[in-house]
Amino acid sequence: MTFPPLREELRGIAPYGAPQLDVPVQLNVNENPYPPSPECAADIAAAVADAATSLNRYPDREFTELRQALAAYLSSDTTQPVTPAQVWAANGSNEVMLQLLQAFAGPGTCALSFAPTYSMYPEYARDAMTEWVVGHREDDFSLDLDAARALVLERRPAVVLMPSPNNPTGTALPPEAVAVLCEAAGDGIVVLDEAYGEFRRPGVPSALDLLPEHRNLVVSRTMSKAFALAGARLGYLAAAPEICDAIRVVRLPYHLSAVTQATALAALRHAPALLARVADLRAERDETVAWLQAQGLRVAASDANFVLFGTFADRHRVWEGLVERGVLIRETGPQGWLRVSVGTPAEMTAFKDALVDVMKEQAA
């Protein structure tokens, strides 16, 4: 027997992870380029210091105060109030997704999405011993609703995973598509992953508005992106209280540390200041889209803090050329496409200058 006795389906698989390279301009993992304000950082430090005085005790396993604060925040972004009983949180939206699959999927069931989609989804399914089923989007990365309904009805997935805005394309899912998926799924769970929801363009609604209409709908968010807290690892969801209750069965004991809870609560106290940068990033994104189009490139419509662009006969050569010039972006999405995170104006200027240089070099 080969040692260690790893599950057979895991043998030979490389761990997930974007390249981590020491270059001046890092625009590859959709981080917020603006750190928390000094005032927010000081509040977090004070809150953690206070939590440290009782670290000999386990944290509130129901994270009651945090659920109340998250519910209040979500209620400000929807026409329908969200209650604390509808909120669940975990260590990043990755753990939220895995808990959903552990609770509602498993052996003998399948999880479903439509490609291109977030590359971690099939790994969540694999880790939960759930079959992975993938449909496909149209050339403009929209969803053919008739085809989507037919696939869901055919496969009867236990969980449907849909990022909106979609990663890696940045496209948002319209409310009618959410309704179609929820109705076709029956008692299956439909997860709208709004990790980039705060970056959506004016007039694009959140799926939070649809929660009262669909008991099987789950809307997930994260504090890693708009809140500039990628290092804190806090993801959360809003759903029917019955769904949150079910997740409690699979959560590990005291899964949210006292330090994590204190950090998230402090950040939420500074939400207006932290989210003030979102408008700047939206404007920079839209300017980047227009600039890329002016270069004759194809660009996906984006409601996120990143832009998918192409197409290149050899995208890896373009990616390598940018790295050589000190700019790291992501080689992901359909063949021929690349994804750039939106950074500061100076970072985006460096990206544009490098890309122009690379394209000229490769055209020569």
Rank of each mutant, 00 (worst) to 15 (best):
M359E: 06
V160D: 01
V48Y: 04
P5G: 04
C244F: 05
C110A: 12
N166F: 01
P165Y: 04
R155T: 10
A41K: 12
M129L: 14
L192S: 07
P205T: 10
A147K: 15
M129Y: 09
L151E: 07
L234I: 13
E194L: 04
A115H: 11
A238Y: 01
T263P: 01
T169K: 08
A276W: 10
G296A: 08
R277G: 14
R67P: 04
E31K: 15
D144N: 15
R315M: 02
R339W: 02
G17I: 08
V190M: 05
F104C: 08
V180S: 07
V250E: 02
E138H: 13
D303S: 08
G231N: 13
T222I: 10
Y254N: 15
F104Q: 02
A346T: 06
M348Y: 01
S220I: 03
A226Q: 04
V289G: 01
S93G: 12
R248D: 15
A228Q: 02
N216L: 06
T83D: 11
A69W: 03
L237K: 01
Q80K: 15
A103D: 05
V180P: 02
N305E: 02
D77E: 15
M359V: 08
L234Y: 04
R315S: 09
W132Q: 09
V356F: 07
H136N: 12
P345D: 06
V340F: 00
Y254L: 09
A18L: 15
Q261H: 06
C110E: 09
R248Q: 15
P253A: 11
S119Y: 13
R215F: 05
A246D: 09
A90Y: 06
G186Y: 02
H316G: 07
G231S: 11
A150N: 11
Q26N: 12
G203T: 05
N167S: 14
G135M: 13
P33K: 05
L153V: 09
E8M: 12
E213R: 15
P175F: 07
A125Q: 10
V87L: 10
E320Y: 05
P38M: 09
A350H: 07
D353L: 14
I329Q: 00
Y16C: 11
M129H: 14
A90M: 13
A125P: 07
A147F: 04
Q20R: 14
V278A: 04
E287L: 12
S302P: 03
P175T: 09
E198I: 03
V191W: 00
L229M: 15
L6P: 04
G321Y: 04
T171N: 14
I44G: 00
A45D: 14
S54L: 09
A52I: 08
R67W: 11
F309I: 03
V160H: 00
F351Q: 00
L217F: 05
D144S: 10
A89Y: 06
Y73P: 03
A262R: 00
V23E: 07
G333T: 04
L153F: 08
F114N: 01
A346P: 01
P212G: 10
L112N: 03
T263E: 13
A301E: 14
V323L: 05
T64K: 14
P116I: 06
A46V: 04
A85G: 10
Q68A: 13
C40E: 05
S341F: 01
P272G: 07
F306R: 00
D280S: 12
V250T: 05
T288L: 13
F309A: 03
D50C: 11
G197T: 07
R233V: 03
E287H: 08
S341L: 04
L265R: 14
T263W: 01
A89W: 05
W132H: 12
L173T: 15
P163R: 05
